[in-house]
Deep mutational scan, measured.
Amino acid sequence: MAAGGDHGSPDSYRSPLASRYASPEMCFVFSDRYKFRTWRQLWLWLAEAEQTLGLPITDEQIQEMKSNLENIDFKMAAEEEKRLRHDVMAHVHTFGHCCPKAAGIIHLGATSCYVGDNTDLIILRNALDLLLPKLARVISRLADFAKERASLPTLGFTHFQPAQLTTVGKRCCLWIQDLCMDLQNLKRVRDDLRFRGVKGTTGTQASFLQLFEGDDHKVEQLDKMVTEKAGFKRAFIITGQTYTRKVDIEVLSVLASLGASVHKICTDIRLLANLKEMEEPFEKQQIGSSAMPYKRNPMRSERCCSLARHLMTLVMDPLQTASVQWFERTLDDSANRRICLAEAFLTADTILNTLQNISEGLVVYPKVIERRIRQELPFMATENIIMAMVKAGGSRQDCHEKIRVLSQQAASVVKQEGGDNDLIERIQVDAYFSPIHSQLDHLLDPSSFTGRASQQVQRFLEEEVYPLLKPYESVMKVKAELCL
């Protein structure tokens, strides 16, 4: 049975990233139509530049190519590739079939990587351009969430054990800070992308030097003109047959890092959902379990974690691919890159769409948070109580021993009897502590235990987050809708 299948058929496997999760716009960027249309555009740009620099290419040939950029006979191309065992030459023939007058000058002087690699770089750039505003929107939604809850005390956790208090907004800023680093890295790697350009079979530009009869300047002009037509500021000066596969490492490393950030955020949300302090959106008709109707599973956060793990592992592909590119190139890269580049971007696209949807509907339960604080705060307040007693004339050592005994009794009630923490009640009825009984409410005010959390939130948002989001103001209103 021949390899390949009808990918629109229910009898043929289709990647869930495309069929179930990723956005239509990201799927289109990695589609065959987008790819092969870009090949034709690159052939047109090459012909236009070659004509401008004096090669015998007519206006009629150029116009014929322009008129057929979208006229792609995919069936013919597939048949040609089956016959020739070469995808680029299959599309040269297919393009030439609908451009008979231009057929002889299509791909003039070029090698397969002229269309293959340059198209990949265009796709990487455009895919990054799709991700950047999506990530900015996630940051914006979380920034709104953090600002609104900047002063809401909550129990902090280290080692997932109760620690000092923080605020809900401050905790959210930990998430935002990681995503801001990801946004900066995505922008950097996007701006650092260079075009492969017009380089020939081993990167020496020998074929173009021959076409222009040894004119170095025209060869350099050709490279520059096509690079500018493709919208790049610069091209690699040095290439082998391909652009260095280190570029793929750079791009997928940034995406993998984004995956790590999203995994951490969504894990926190899942843990908070278990504590009943916070939940992701839950639709009115949504079913959490087929057997347990009360369940409210954090399905979206779980999906993000599941896909983020996949995204983090994909960076190993370009690392290994770059390491086995012998001399000017081997074909070890080809099949692998067809999979890992598309999957990385479709996965990143999915987790950003999902995280935006989550961040637009996060639900906080202040009463649950308050109750958990009441359970733990008495123990945390013991040092403040000791200091207040010393100020009232008591002995630190005597007070410490009193607190120690009462704390152990209260802990026994919590752990052995399943009761509430009654340390404060014990202190309130103990005559030894009568000098500070009137101060206990103040000493137990949760806001006095959150330090500068709310001020940190305000400063972080104003100095770091809002300036970073400013270039994306025009796209901030787009909502994230999930079908599944």
Score class of each variant (00 low, 15 high):
residue 260 A to M: 06
residue 71 N to R: 09
residue 189 V to N: 10
residue 65 M to S: 04
residue 92 V to P: 00
residue 62 I to S: 04
residue 18 A to V: 13
residue 428 Q to M: 11
residue 427 I to F: 13
residue 77 A to H: 15
residue 483 C to I: 13
residue 228 E to P: 04
residue 131 L to F: 11
residue 43 W to G: 00
residue 355 L to Q: 07
residue 189 V to D: 06
residue 93 H to M: 09
residue 383 E to W: 03
residue 204 T to S: 14
residue 177 Q to C: 10
residue 47 A to W: 03
residue 254 V to D: 08
residue 232 F to R: 01
residue 464 E to A: 07
residue 280 E to W: 00
residue 441 D to P: 10
residue 259 G to C: 05
residue 53 L to Q: 08
residue 223 D to V: 02
residue 22 A to V: 11
residue 135 L to N: 08
residue 44 L to K: 06
residue 185 N to I: 06
residue 321 T to A: 01
residue 278 M to L: 13
residue 62 I to V: 10
residue 168 V to M: 07
residue 350 T to F: 05
residue 332 D to T: 00
residue 414 V to E: 01
residue 469 L to F: 09
residue 202 T to K: 02
residue 84 L to G: 07
residue 329 R to K: 04
residue 193 L to C: 10
residue 381 A to V: 11
residue 299 M to L: 03
residue 228 E to T: 13
residue 340 C to D: 05
residue 218 K to D: 05
residue 69 L to C: 15
residue 56 P to I: 11
residue 132 L to D: 12
residue 279 E to S: 06
residue 458 Q to S: 13
residue 281 P to E: 12
residue 188 R to K: 11
residue 474 S to L: 15
residue 16 P to G: 11
residue 350 T to K: 06
residue 446 P to Q: 03
residue 466 Y to W: 13
residue 352 L to Q: 07
residue 46 L to D: 01
residue 386 I to A: 06
residue 242 T to E: 08
residue 484 L to R: 15
residue 47 A to Y: 00
residue 406 L to I: 13
residue 363 V to K: 05
residue 173 C to W: 02
residue 354 T to K: 04
residue 248 D to M: 00
residue 27 C to K: 07
residue 351 I to F: 05
residue 306 S to Y: 03
residue 390 V to T: 07
residue 368 V to A: 05
residue 326 W to T: 05
residue 358 I to K: 08
residue 303 R to I: 01
residue 307 L to C: 15
residue 196 R to V: 11
residue 417 E to W: 10
residue 156 G to L: 00
residue 100 P to D: 11
residue 221 Q to E: 14
residue 107 H to F: 03
residue 47 A to V: 07
residue 401 E to W: 12
residue 189 V to T: 14
residue 398 D to I: 07
residue 237 I to S: 07
residue 322 A to P: 03
residue 355 L to H: 04
residue 8 G to W: 15
residue 94 T to H: 15
residue 77 A to Y: 15
residue 312 M to A: 06
residue 287 I to S: 06
residue 176 I to M: 14
residue 266 C to A: 09
residue 217 H to K: 07
residue 435 P to V: 07
residue 294 Y to I: 01
residue 223 D to W: 00
residue 243 Y to V: 15
residue 174 L to K: 05
residue 79 E to W: 11
residue 175 W to A: 05
residue 258 L to P: 01
residue 468 L to G: 08
residue 19 S to W: 13
residue 263 H to W: 03
residue 298 P to M: 07
residue 416 Q to H: 13
residue 304 C to L: 14
residue 296 R to M: 15
residue 68 N to L: 05
residue 361 G to R: 15
residue 417 E to G: 12
residue 199 K to P: 00
residue 167 T to A: 01
residue 297 N to Y: 04
residue 106 I to K: 00
residue 367 K to Y: 06
residue 448 S to C: 15
residue 475 V to D: 11
residue 426 R to C: 04
residue 317 D to T: 06
residue 355 L to E: 01
residue 260 A to F: 04
residue 253 S to A: 12
residue 209 L to T: 11
residue 423 L to Q: 05
residue 25 E to K: 12
residue 8 G to I: 15
residue 10 P to N: 15
residue 103 A to E: 08
residue 34 Y to L: 06
residue 413 V to T: 13
residue 399 C to G: 08
residue 264 K to I: 02
residue 190 R to I: 08
residue 178 D to V: 05
residue 37 R to C: 10
residue 158 T to D: 00
residue 95 F to C: 05
residue 75 K to T: 12
residue 75 K to S: 15
residue 275 L to T: 07
residue 373 I to T: 06
residue 2 A to F: 15
residue 58 T to G: 07
residue 445 D to R: 11
residue 315 V to S: 09
residue 48 E to C: 06
residue 380 M to A: 01
residue 365 Y to R: 12
residue 362 L to F: 12
residue 53 L to R: 00
residue 189 V to G: 13
residue 446 P to K: 04
residue 284 K to T: 13
residue 169 G to L: 01
residue 405 V to Q: 08
residue 22 A to D: 06
residue 113 C to Y: 05
residue 323 S to A: 09
residue 192 D to A: 15
residue 224 K to C: 10
residue 53 L to A: 10
residue 340 C to V: 14
residue 124 L to R: 02
residue 105 I to D: 06
residue 248 D to Q: 01
residue 68 N to Y: 13
residue 400 H to K: 02
residue 92 V to H: 00
residue 321 T to C: 09
residue 373 I to S: 04
residue 215 D to S: 14
residue 171 R to M: 00
residue 229 K to C: 10
residue 143 A to C: 06
residue 414 V to R: 05
residue 39 W to C: 15
residue 176 I to R: 00
residue 359 S to D: 12
residue 36 F to S: 13
residue 13 Y to A: 13
residue 112 S to G: 07
residue 158 T to L: 03
residue 440 L to R: 04
residue 211 L to Y: 10
residue 335 A to D: 00
residue 471 P to N: 15
residue 416 Q to T: 08
residue 148 E to G: 11
residue 132 L to K: 11
residue 351 I to P: 02
residue 441 D to I: 08
residue 194 R to I: 05
residue 32 D to S: 14
residue 93 H to Q: 13
residue 235 A to F: 14
residue 202 T to F: 00
residue 303 R to C: 04
residue 9 S to I: 15
residue 297 N to T: 02
residue 484 L to C: 11
residue 200 G to I: 02
residue 378 P to I: 07
residue 68 N to R: 09
residue 457 V to M: 04
residue 291 A to R: 01
residue 475 V to F: 14
residue 38 T to E: 11
residue 473 E to H: 12
residue 404 R to S: 11
residue 141 R to P: 15
residue 317 D to E: 05
residue 476 M to I: 14
residue 450 T to V: 11
residue 297 N to A: 01
residue 164 Q to A: 13
residue 287 I to F: 00
residue 152 L to C: 10
residue 243 Y to T: 15
residue 2 A to E: 08
residue 378 P to E: 04
residue 403 I to P: 01
residue 396 R to A: 05
residue 280 E to D: 07
residue 76 M to E: 14
residue 455 Q to V: 09
residue 140 S to I: 13
residue 254 V to S: 10
residue 42 L to W: 00
residue 304 C to W: 02
residue 467 P to Q: 15
residue 467 P to I: 10
residue 362 L to P: 07
residue 184 Q to E: 15
residue 349 D to Y: 06
residue 207 S to M: 05
residue 401 E to Q: 13
residue 452 R to K: 06
residue 50 E to S: 08
residue 256 A to T: 08
residue 135 L to Q: 15
residue 432 Y to H: 13
residue 463 E to N: 15
residue 166 T to V: 08
residue 257 S to H: 06
residue 6 D to S: 11
residue 399 C to I: 11
residue 322 A to C: 13
residue 317 D to K: 03
residue 22 A to Y: 10
residue 235 A to V: 13
residue 339 I to D: 03
residue 360 E to L: 06
residue 313 T to H: 07
residue 83 R to H: 11
residue 321 T to D: 00
